[in-house]
């Protein structure tokens, strides 16, 4: 059964339709790529599913429950977690506390339990020296911290919005392996937005393609990358 589905999901910003009539589903243990040119509505789509924005029309269901208008914090408590394209560290909290936030507020853990589980998750992601300020972290470490924080919510569905952006190829490889491992071990459904097609090819089981807010193709990376509409969307109408 699908963990997460949307039906006819639409978001209009006074005239501009950023997401237009998108219906999709995500299954347990599946890594789904969400691709499309700049401005295609990928991030807006994740904002809608995670509750940061509310849709203009359409519906969202999670494990059979309608969550179309549920607030973001309720969705993260239900099991939908995410990271952001632009990093969102909590700069006045230590690294460990950043990760604890997810466990404390989504899973109602005591500070002690939350610290324990945060430490375990950080160890799994090979993120060390957890008493540091976030300002002392490298970009890779910040991204790991944000993934760790999302995992501390103990989600069933996880969205990673361009986590690989800004990383070099070694770091990217390392992070791909990490994401694959955590998805497998936790039976997570993972939605991945990436611009680097190599990452999408390596990482995902299935891909959906958005263009100008519409879902224009769906399938494995191999089939989608040969789809003429997708090629046109990426190269422009003139090509």
């Amino acid at each position: 059964m699908s963990k997460l589905t949307t039906t006819g999901l639409t978001k209009a910003f006074s005239g501009l339709v950023a997401v237009n009539n998108v219906s999709f589903h995500m299954d347990e243990g599946e890594i789904l790529g969400i691709i499309g040119p700049n401005g295609a509505g990928k991030t807006t789509f994740i904002h809608l599913v995670s509750g940061i924005l509310l849709p203009t029309s359409g519906s969202i269901t999670f494990k059979g429950n309608d969550i179309t208008y549920a607030p973001a914090h309720v969705r993260s408590r239900m099991g939908i977690a995410r990271t952001y394209q632009l990093i969102h560290p909590l700069e006045n909290l230590k690294v460990i506390e950043n990760v604890m936030v997810g466990a404390v507020f989504s899973k109602d853990k005591s500070l002690k339990e939350a610290r324990k589980s945060a430490e375990a998750i950080c160890a799994e992601l090979e993120l060390g020296r957890l008493e540091r300020d976030t300002a002392q972290l490298s970009i890779l470490e910040i991204k790991k911290m944000e993934i760790a924080r999302a995992l501390a919510n103990e989600p069933e569905v996880l969205f990673l919005d361009e986590v690989m952006a800004g990383l070099n190829s070694d770091e990217t490889k390392q992070l791909i392996a990490t994401v694959q491992r955590i998805a497998r071990e936790r039976k997570l459904a993972v939605g991945v937005v990436e611009h680097v097609m190599g990452v999408i090819r390596e990482l995902t089981h299935r891909v959906i393609v958005l263009e100008a807010g519409e879902l224009i193709a769906e399938g494995t990376y191999e089939t989608v990358s040969k789809n003429p509409r997708v090629i046109e969307a990426y190269l422009g109408g003139a090509a």
């Binding site: 995670s50 509750g51 940061i52 607030p71 973001a72 914090h73 969705r75 993260s76 408590r77 977690a81 995410r82 952001y84 969102h88 560290p89 909590l90 700069e91 006045n92 909290l93 936030v101 997810g102 404390v104 507020f105 989504s106 899973k107 924080r149 999302a150 501390a152 919510n153």
Partner: peptide, 11 residues
């Protein structure tokens, strides 16, 4: 620090 981040972590 970040209301958006707080919201998507259950706060």
């Amino acid at each position: 620090n970040d209301e958006t981040s707080a919201r998507s972590n259950g706060v």
